[in-house]
Design a protein around this nucleic acid. Structure first.
Lengths: 355, 355
DNA sequence: GTAATTTTGAGGTACGTTCCTCATTTTTGA
DNA sequence: TCAAAAATGAGGAACGTACCTCAAAATTAC
C-alpha cells in the first residue's frame, strides 16, 4: 500500500498535526522536526494524494476564457475544443466559462476583464492582440492574484503567467523551408496572402518565411503580402489578377485562414493541384483540400492539445504548482496528406460512466 | 456551488442510497426511479467528482510495463519518458513498474507475463514483436481481466485492448512524400537502410515508402533495403560501398534508429548535407544532426505523449471508462530544423509543492 | 528557577463519494 | 387479499487529506 500521512507521522515519531504543518508549510515547527518529517517522507517514498488533498480543500477551478467574437472557423474550432476539454475536466473540479468580446474593440474587452475579479474566477485565458489598454487590464488582474494566460497570440509585454501557442516566426520559417524544398529551390515566385485575426502573428510568420527564403532559397522570390481583409470577393480578385500577371508564380503561402475561398478560386482558374500551396491551421476545409491535393501542406497547432494545455496550465498556476513544460509545449505540426490524423469520433460524455 | 449526490437526491425526491444505486448501475431500482434520478442529474448539471469517487473506492493503479532490454537510444528514451510520466501520475494513484525482458527470447517474455496476474496489477503495457507464444500470453492475461495495451508496435492478431503508437505504413508514406518532393520529383536513386528493433515495423515503413514512390515519383528509384544489423562497422561498409557504386543516389531513407553511425559515415565520406537524409525517431543525435543539416527531416512520434497516453489509456481501460480518442492518437510528426521543439528543462519533482 | 514563549499532540469535522446493513414501504403474483 | 418479492430509505464507516481548537510539553529568556 502507498504510505499516507499517518505512516509518515509514525515513521518520523511525530503527530499527524506536525506532519500536516510540514507538508503545508505552516509555521511553528522546529527545523529539526521538519528534517525528521522530510526524511520519513523520503524514506517511505510518500507522494501526496492530490485528489484527496483537493477534496479536503474543496478547491475548485472556475476559469474565464476570452475569445474574439470572430466567426472564423479557427476561432470556432478553438471554442469547441475548449468546450470539450472543459467537459472532460469537469470531473476534476474545473469549470470553463467562455466569453466572447467584440474583436475590434479593445475597450470592451478591458471592461469585461475588469469585471472578472468580482466573479471569483481562479484564472483567465485570453486570445487578443496586445494593446496598451489590454496591458493595463492584464496587469490589474494579476495584481489581484488572478493567473492570466495568453492564448494563440502572445502578450509579451504584459506580465501574463504563460503563453500557450506556437512561435509564429518559427512557423513561418517552417512554411518557408517546405515551400523552398517543394519547389526544388526555384527558380520561381511565391504569392503570399495575408488576413489573419491577429496582425502581429501574420507579421511574424512573414518574417520567418522571408528569413528562410533569403538565406536558403535565393532563387525564389516571395512577392508582397496581398491582403484580402476577410473578403472572399477581394481574395478572388487579387489572386486572379496576380496569377494573370505573374506567370512565374509556382507557389502560394497563405498565412491566414480562409482556405475555402482560396481553393475555390484556384479551382475556377483551373489551377487545382498545379501550384504548391502551403497554409496554416488544419480546419475541416484544409483537411479536405489536403486530401484532394489542392493544398500541399498545412502548418498547424493541435487545438485539442492547446485547449487541454490551457486548462492544465491555468490549474497549475492557480495552485502555484510547477508545470510539465514538455507536455505544455505546443508543437508546430506539419501535415501532409500522408500523415493527416484520422478524425476521431466525437467524444461521448456520460455522467453515469464508471470512474 | 457544484451539485453533489445529495442535491440530486433532494431534487429527484429519493434517498442518497437510491442515487448511488443509479449512479453505479447497482440493481434493484425501478425504471421510473432511474428516470427521475437521471432527469435530476440532467437538470442540475451534475458531474461526478472523480477524485472523491476514486478516493472512496480506494482504487489505485499499479501498471506493469514491459520493454525489451535493448540498449538502443529509442528504448532508453521511452523508458525515461515512462518513468517521468509515472512520477507525475503518482499523485493520482498510478504506479508504474518497468520490466525489461530479453529482446530475443519470446519465451522469457511469456513467462514474465504469466507471473503478472499474481502481483495484482491493474494493467499491462508491452512493446514486443508478435509471436504465437506472445499471442497466447496476451490472451491469458485478458482472460484474467487484465487490460493489455500494445506499445509502439501493434499486436493486431491478439485481443489487446488498445494500440498506442503510430501507423508505420503511413509514416513510411510520409517519409516517401518528403523524400520525393525534396528531390524535386527526381530523377535519382534513394538508399534505404533497415535495422529496426521490430522487424514488422520496418517492413511496414518500407511498404508505405514504396507505395508513394511508385504512385507519385516514378522517376525516383528506391534501392533495396540494406541491413546493418545494429553493427556500426557493417553500416559504414555498406553505405560506403553503395555510394561508391551508385553515383545517382541523392537521398537516404533510414528506417531504423542508429543515426550516429550514419551521420558519422557520411561525414567521413565528405557528404554531410549533400544528400537528402530522412530518418525516424527524434533521438538526441537526430536533433543534433538536424541542426547541423546532416539530416533533412525526421519522422517521429512524441515519446512524452506516448508515455502519458499509455498511462491514461491503461487507467481508462482498468476503469472500463471511455477514452478521448483525439487525445490518445499519437501523431506522425515531421520535424525539420525549423520546427524543432525546444528541449524543455527536466521537470522538477517535489512532494512538498503545493497541490 | 520561574515565567513566558514556542513547539507539539490529541482529537475532531469536513470534503464527495462508495459501499454496507437493516428496516420499512411499495409492488407483484396467485 | 395476502404473502412473497422487489424497491427504497436511513444511517454509518471509510478513503486520504486539510484545517481547526485546545491542552500539554518542551524550550527559551531572565
Amino acid at each position: 500500500m502507498r504510505p499516507t500521512v499517518n505512516d509518515i507521522a509514525r515513521e518520523a515519531g511525530v503527530s499527524l498535526a506536525t506532519v500536516d504543518r510540514v507538508l503545508n508549510d505552516r509555521p511553528g515547527v522546529r527545523d529539526k522536526t521538519i528534517r525528521a518529517v522530510t526524511e520519513a517522507i523520503e524514506k517511505l517514498g510518500y507522494v501526496r494524494d492530490l485528489a484527496a488533498a483537493n477534496l479536503a480543500r474543496s478547491r475548485s477551478y472556475p476559469f474565464a476564457i476570452m475569445l474574439p467574437d470572430t466567426e472564423s472557423q479557427f476561432v470556432q474550432t478553438l471554442a469547441d475544443a475548449l468546450d470539450v476539454a472543459g467537459k472532460q475536466a469537469a470531473t476534476s473540479r474545473v469549470e470553463v466559462r467562455l466569453h466572447r468580446f467584440p474583436a475590434e474593440d479593445p475597450h470592451a474587452l478591458a471592461a469585461m476583464l475588469a469585471r472578472l475579479p468580482d466573479q471569483d474566477y481562479a484564472g483567465v485565458a485570453l486570445m487578443a492582440p496586445e494593446t496598451p489598454i489590454l496591458r493595463d487590464a492584464v496587469r490589474s488582474l494579476r495584481a489581484k492574484g488572478l493567473p492570466v494566460v495568453a492564448l494563440v497570440s502572445d502578450l509579451p509585454n504584459t506580465d501574463r503567467d504563460h503563453f500557450i501557442g506556437i512561435d509564429n516566426r518559427a512557423a513561418g520559417r517552417t512554411a518557408g523551408v517546405l515551400m523552398g524544398r517543394f519547389l526544388g529551390g526555384g527558380p520561381g515566385q511565391v504569392m503570399v496572402l495575408g488576413q489573419s485575426l491577429l496582425a502581429r502573428d501574420t507579421i511574424e510568420r512573414r518574417r520567418g518565411f522571408d528569413e528562410v527564403m533569403l538565406r536558403d532559397f535565393p532563387r525564389i522570390e516571395p512577392l508582397q503580402t496581398l491582403e484580402s481583409h476577410g473578403s472572399r470577393q477581394t481574395l478572388r480578385q487579387i489572386v486572379a489578377e496576380m496569377l494573370a500577371n505573374a506567370p512565374q508564380v509556382r507557389g502560394i503561402y497563405a498565412m491566414g485562414d480562409g482556405h475555402r475561398a482560396l481553393t475555390q478560386t484556384l479551382g475556377e482558374l483551373g489551377l487545382s493541384g498545379k501550384l504548391t500551396v502551403i497554409c496554416h491551421e488544419l480546419t475541416p476545409h484544409a483537411r479536405a483540400a489536403l486530401e484532394t491535393g489542392e493544398i500541399s501542406a498545412v502548418i498547424t497547432q493541435n487545438l485539442g492539445h492547446l485547449a487541454r494545455s490551457t486548462l492544465r496550465v491555468l490549474r497549475a498556476k492557480a495552485d502555484r504548482a510547477p508545470l510539465d513544460e514538455g507536455q505544455e509545449q505546443i508543437r508546430i505540426e506539419i501535415v501532409l496528406r500522408e500523415n493527416l490524423p484520422a478524425l476521431p469520433d466525437t467524444v461521448p460524455h456520460s455522467h453515469t460512466t464508471a470512474a
